[in-house]
Amino acid sequence: MGQSTQGVALRNHLIRDAIHQALYDRMKADDSVVILGEGAVMKMHYDAPAIEREFPERIVTLPISEDGNTNFAVGMALLGVKPVVDVITSDFLFRTMDSICNTAAKINFVSGESDSKKTIVVRAEFLMAGPTTGQRLESLFTHVPGLDVVIPSTPLDARGLMTTALTKGGVTIFFEDRMIPDSTTKKADLAPTESVPIAFGRARVRHEDSGVTIVSYASTLRQIETLVDSKKVKCDLIDLRSIYPVDYETIFSSVRRTGRLLIVEPDVTYAGVGAEIAATVSEKCWEELEKPVRRVGMPRETIPASTALHKYFVPSDSQILSAVRALM
């Protein structure tokens, strides 16, 4: 869907295309699904021309007022509309934190038990570029009751998870990791021909072997999978897919078999998703753990403007392999 416009080859477009395929299918099946956001019409024109062509009246370009835009979506949801709010880059989420956390997240708590569950999807993307572009905010939203947080690592998961976000009800923060290269996408992970829901809180075991349990998501999951294939790493590799809710049963089952856990995340490790998983596994699987849980992730530092320094802010292959060896 993304390459069909003017022959332009978009960078890392497979996951984005899959998201738009799910949006297209739901807009065709459900008249209440509407796309909102800054530059929404222009984005659909280039990224998803089929949506622009068939549903032009359900694409609404909003002003540069992120907080107001999300509150506008809340009002629409109260009337039965299912808005998909595109905040564009994840950094702009800072500008709409109040409306997401204090208004959208509470919508199904305060709107009355007699009402049907309201649906809102807030989209944002990660693309590391500098101090104010590409910051990872996913763990912040896992603290807020009323929000689900999903980050697909494959086109297949992207299509399924977006389908679920628009059919199950509730408020979903849906992240697209633009740091995932299309070139490493396996044929089996391409978007299917139909939009099949994938339940939130259901991790996927990407590789199964003895040795160590590795838990990850998004860009670092794909990085590890390449290492597992090339370096023949013996591990259970678990893709979280949603970081709230988390599929702890799958993690527990693997850790009880391997006795070792490594968590690799593309986000800052301090007070992050990995810290929560490490604490929970240590509480629930203490007797089965043969070595302390290890974590690898980003430092708690400001992203530099120099792209030459970005490699020091994401987990390296050597860091990941070193952590695996330390657990074996």
Results as ranks from 00 to 15, higher is better:
residue 59 I to L: 14
residue 99 S to K: 04
residue 271 A to T: 11
residue 238 I to Q: 09
residue 164 T to E: 10
residue 173 I to M: 15
residue 33 V to N: 03
residue 233 V to A: 04
residue 172 T to A: 07
residue 255 V to Y: 08
residue 198 I to M: 11
residue 118 K to T: 00
residue 228 V to A: 03
residue 292 P to F: 13
residue 141 F to T: 12
residue 91 D to S: 15
residue 171 V to N: 03
residue 57 E to I: 07
residue 40 A to Y: 01
residue 233 V to H: 04
residue 34 V to I: 13
residue 109 F to A: 04
residue 53 R to F: 15
residue 192 P to W: 11
residue 194 E to I: 14
residue 274 G to H: 06
residue 39 G to R: 15
residue 96 T to I: 05
residue 119 T to F: 00
residue 50 A to Q: 15
residue 178 R to D: 08
residue 89 T to I: 09
residue 111 S to Q: 02
residue 101 C to Q: 10
residue 205 V to P: 12
residue 123 R to T: 01
residue 198 I to E: 09
residue 271 A to I: 06
residue 194 E to S: 15
residue 242 S to I: 08
residue 106 K to R: 14
residue 149 V to D: 12
residue 251 I to Q: 15
residue 183 S to H: 00
residue 192 P to G: 12
residue 302 T to P: 01
residue 17 D to S: 15
residue 101 C to L: 13
residue 149 V to C: 09
residue 35 I to L: 06
residue 309 L to N: 04
residue 156 L to M: 12
residue 66 E to P: 06
residue 34 V to K: 00
residue 12 N to R: 02
residue 87 V to E: 07
residue 44 M to W: 00
residue 106 K to M: 08
residue 311 K to D: 03
residue 120 I to R: 05
residue 276 E to V: 10
residue 235 C to G: 07
residue 296 V to F: 05
residue 213 T to P: 03
residue 43 K to W: 06
residue 102 N to S: 15
residue 34 V to A: 00
residue 76 M to E: 01
residue 286 W to E: 01
residue 163 T to H: 13
residue 303 I to K: 03
residue 158 A to Y: 09
residue 191 A to Y: 07
residue 61 T to D: 15
residue 323 A to T: 01
residue 164 T to V: 11
residue 62 L to E: 05
residue 321 L to K: 03
residue 26 R to V: 05
residue 191 A to P: 08
residue 301 E to P: 00
residue 303 I to T: 08
residue 139 S to Q: 14
residue 168 K to A: 12
residue 236 D to H: 10
residue 181 P to A: 00
residue 70 T to E: 02
residue 296 V to T: 08
residue 7 G to W: 06
residue 89 T to C: 01
residue 151 I to C: 12
residue 195 S to G: 10
residue 222 R to E: 11
residue 243 I to M: 08
residue 30 D to S: 04
residue 260 R to L: 01
residue 183 S to I: 02
residue 289 L to Q: 03
residue 162 M to G: 11
residue 50 A to W: 13
residue 217 Y to M: 01
residue 244 Y to H: 11
residue 195 S to R: 14
residue 209 D to M: 04
residue 325 R to P: 04
residue 158 A to S: 09
residue 177 D to A: 06
residue 261 L to K: 07
residue 63 P to M: 07
residue 307 T to K: 07
residue 92 F to Y: 15
residue 52 E to G: 11
residue 299 P to M: 04
residue 81 V to N: 04
residue 248 Y to N: 12
residue 205 V to L: 11
